[in-house]
Computed example of a mutant assay.
Amino acid sequence: MEVTNVFGRVVLVVGPESLLAERAVDALVRDALVERPGASVNRVSAVDLDAGRLAEVTGGSLFASDTIVVVTDLADLAHDLVDTVASFATQPSDELALVLVHPGGNKGKGLLDRLKKAKVATRDCPTIKAWELPQFAVAEARALGGRLEAPTAATLVEAIGGDTRGVAAAVRQLIADSDDRHISETDVHRYFAGRADVTSFTVADHVMSGRRDEALGALRWALETGVPPVLVTSALASSLRSQGRYSDLAGARVRDAEVAQQVGVPPWKVKDLARHSRDWTPRGLASALQLVARADAAVKGAASDPAFALEQLVIGVAAQRGRRPEAGMGR
């Protein structure tokens, strides 16, 4: 096993894709334990740190002077600890392997800039875009010693939805249950066709296609099987925004693959957007997004009955489909 030198330095794991971040952290901890098997491991959220606790977790223990420390949620680090944490990068301790995990974004950017200026080792964990998920699934299968063709991967993503963890778990399950470690279209349909009928994205697809009654049925079944209400509003908002971005590209002479990348959807989704574009005006999309925003607030606590709020959302958004601009008003 090739072991990187983890002790005596700081490693920054940065980016919003939590699955990739967790894998990077686990790999670093494994490398550090191979390097120094007797080291202690401390995992702590920056939210829970004060000066005393930081000194405690980074100072070793009575039984192990070598210490591996993983600090998550770095964006929430108290301001008065920024200098102390930054000092680990410029004055590293040979007995400490410090892994700092930051989700990216502007919060806590001052510390990030200082760490990068100190040239700490960095593991980037960018968001896996929707159009990249089939490729991600193929790579997951390959990493597990299996085989998955791109068209089948696209079918799997369509069934699972845009959740990276869900896609990874599905690939792992299919590989484990396959005698030859090859995931076929038949395998995907056998395991996940039923699940596709109850995902939040299926509800959204029914709404975008004008199938209101099917959307309501799928919504009720999804909620009964434990799909969180907030995922429904998120999926519908994502579908509406994708449709809006596609509308902005109307008339542009670009290939479907380029459209998919600009809109932020997998290539197979472009045909759906093209078909739906005949029924969704910019005004209708804007009105629908306002309804989603209100429903999102409702399911996050502003309403006593999230299921009712979602049913009203489905009915309200479906009503925006096909509405033409009023006389005298532009699109």
Score class of each variant (00 low, 15 high):
Ala154Tyr: 05
Leu223Thr: 07
Val230Phe: 12
Arg212Tyr: 02
Val292Cys: 05
Asp94Pro: 09
Thr4His: 12
Asn42Leu: 10
Asp305Phe: 12
Leu289Cys: 10
Leu12Val: 00
Leu310Ile: 07
Arg241Met: 09
Ser242Lys: 10
Val25Ser: 00
Gly226Gln: 08
Ala130Val: 10
Ala319Ile: 03
Glu2Leu: 13
Gly251Met: 06
Asp296Thr: 11
Asp179Gly: 05
Ala24Asp: 05
Arg114Gln: 13
Arg241His: 07
Leu156Cys: 03
Thr202Leu: 03
Asp94Lys: 04
Val25Ala: 06
Gln173Tyr: 02
Glu185Leu: 14
Asp73Leu: 05
Leu216His: 00
Val232Pro: 07
Asp80Ala: 05
Gly194Tyr: 01
Asp205His: 06
Ala318Lys: 01
Tyr246Glu: 06
Ala55Phe: 12
Leu144His: 05
Gly251Ser: 07
Ser242Val: 06
Glu17Trp: 02
Thr84Gly: 09
Arg190Val: 08
Ala121Asp: 14
Leu240Lys: 01
Val57Gln: 04
His206Asn: 13
Gly15Ile: 01
Lys269His: 15
Leu28Gly: 04
Asp248Ile: 11
Gln173Leu: 13
Arg323Cys: 06
Gly244Tyr: 11
Val85Tyr: 08
Ala302Ser: 12
Ala288Lys: 00
Val70His: 01
Ser234Gly: 13
Ala176Pro: 02
Leu62Gln: 00
Val207Thr: 03
Asn5Leu: 15
Asp248Lys: 11
Arg323Thr: 14
